[in-house]
Design a protein around this nucleic acid. Structure first.
Lengths: 347, 347
DNA sequence: CTGTTAGCGCGTTCAA
DNA sequence: TTGAACGCGCTAACAG
């Protein structure tokens, strides 16, 4: 059976031209082909079912079109709005995009960066790869630098401070604004579900929130900042622990919506014990539309983040790495009712 | 700056061996390398920051490891449980996996299949690519056959009937069982949000539901089967249309959970008008845990689907294409309360 | 505008 | 166990 794919030579022969002409006809770049020849090549390719051997093309050219989007994990519960936005943006630009899930270990990321380099793709985007004091980071930086030394473009999404073009969003400011808003609504006793202690995004959101509270004269003791896994399930569990502590609690801030939803569900499952505890999140994922009560959160314009990231990637490499910061804004919904109006929130 | 990646020759030279030996040392396959040489090659590679040029490797070998998972669209709201399961399964097997989003047009799928062939990846999985009377299907089949003729393995997830290994799940049976269950709970007047009229999954679930109703003596007039977009937003809109019609309506069956959640939200937004209308979905996505009321649905073991698909892909190509059918089961939750007990459901 | 020729980086015979 | 030489399929430089 195994017929083997037709090669460029086959197409060329079939069309009665040389491989060079066939190549030129197939690749829109060079116009220097007589129309009749171009037509015959295209027809031959069609007839033979020819498909460019992209691997060979990448070898010959030394690089390959397209963007690789590197993720640490595949979402289990809720779609990642950033990913959806990036896929859409790439499609708009006519760029092939493929998603690679690296795994959470630092070395996994490095391995996948090397793999992308091995594929000679031109653009590499990655999000949330950075940890505080992560011993893996130097290796990651090295791998990314090698990627760029090979002629590729790297854009980091999330955390500034690494020597690459970066799209960051205002985690700290958003959380700060959120805290002020909540205090304004009458909340006083908070807890934070902070996710990984060493994640930069998590840290910024946590610190921003604490700062926001402080600016309103509200203190938050350290034991009310609960670290742990960065997931819906972990947040569900952590919220339960909080309740069992029996401390006074008006509101929980979870560093992302997915965690916030987990907390919200725990409160609901806890019944009366969960009554009166408000919840706020961060990200404003689409799924919030279908959730009751509506979740108060910090909205981020994910499509803009994606578009900006791609814009950076497609522009000429700058002398100095650039950082674009995307702003968000607080959206207050029913999960944090105004305590002055309705003393008993109903999460 | 552009240092260019070290090539295999560089490593070989650095280690004082030939490229052949270097190649053998780097690729675990052939053991015929003296340990001391292997060590030197590995050290040289490490020192130089060598990374295999996967494109060149693919050209030389004629193929490349790994699985390509072809999707029609990136989820916007809720994570696709199948995708998450497949990524996990591939990681377990140590197989590189990359996700490609093709777009919804039939030709897009063909193009991406060809691209995967051009990459010479070994395994191609795709889900939900098939439509009834889709003029694109013959082309798709041709493209997939070429992929296999090149030595690749194709596994389809969803719809049997195409000449490839397939993992299907019991859409029709699940919907049938669901219908019976709902009738048993006391519902009589249904509507179906059926999604695309020509999608096979949608059709099977719709038909199964209708059959289930019929087997209980409940008729469903054709005008209560609403077709349209296969999305949460479309379902939201369609549910609104249903309400405005002013027909008697006990329960809505949406052909997937995402649509069901959209309908549920519409009913909530509609306030009193939405009171008393139950909703059921299909898939049992993880996000349902955080939704109130809990959504009645048909549970499918997505990890099993993924595992089975990979198992088929990794086994020898059979003479005849195989089809594995994965069973699901109904899960009744609060979105469809027992009418005998509580006359007024509260969606 | 076209064909010839020489690479791209790697795997893999085939002798040694 | 090793190395020299060739081939994978394609693009690019150079003539014509």
């Amino acid at each position: 059976m195994e017929h083997r794919s037709p090669r460029l030579v086959d197409v060329a022969r079939h069309a009665g031209v040389s491989t060079a002409t066939a190549s030129r006809a197939l690749n829109p770049s060079s116009r220097s082909v007589r129309d009749s020849n171009r037509a015959r090549v295209l027809a031959a390719a069609e007839e033979l079912g020819y498909t460019t051997n992209l691997a060979a093309q990448a070898v010959a050219r030394g690089h390959s079109r397209g963007v690789t989007l590197l993720l640490k994990a595949m979402p289990q519960d809720y779609a990642n709005p950033m990913v959806a936005g990036m896929v859409a943006a790439a499609h708009r630009e006519g760029l092939p995009i493929n998603l690679v899930v690296a795994g959470t270990a630092a070395h996994d990321l490095v391995r996948e960066v090397d793999a992308a380099r091995g594929q000679r793709t031109q653009i590499l985007m990655t999000m949330g790869g950075r940890h505080i004091d992560d011993r893996g980071t130097p290796d990651l930086v090295t791998a990314l630098q090698r990627y760029e030394a090979d002629g590729g473009r790297v854009v980091l999404i999330t955390q500034p401070g690494l020597p690459f073009d970066t799209v960051a969003y205002a985690n700290r400011e958003g959380a700060r604004e959120l805290a002020r808003e909540l205090v304004g609504l009458g909340y006083e006793h908070f807890a934070i579900l902070a996710g990984y202690a060493n994640g930069l995004t998590q840290r910024d959101r946590t610190q921003g929130f604490v700062e926001g509270l402080a600016s309103c004269g509200v203190e938050l003791s350290a034991d009310r900042i609960v670290t742990g896994d960065f997931s819906r399930d972990a947040a569900y569990a952590a919220a339960g622990d909080l309740l069992r502590r029996g401390i006074r609690l008006d509101a929980i801030f979870a560093v992302n919506d997915s965690m916030a939803l987990g907390a919200l569900t725990l409160l609901r499952d806890a019944g009366a014990r969960g009554q009166g505890v408000a919840v706020a999140g961060f990200d404003d994922i689409k799924a919030l539309r279908d959730v009751t009560p509506g979740l108060t959160t910090v909205h981020l314009p994910w499509d803009d983040v994606a578009t900006e990231a791609l814009r950076l990637a497609l522009s000429d490499r700058p002398a100095e790495p650039r950082t674009s910061v995307i702003q968000g804004h607080v959206v207050v919904r029913e999960s944090t009712p105004d305590r002055h109006m309705a003393p008993a929130p109903r999460p």
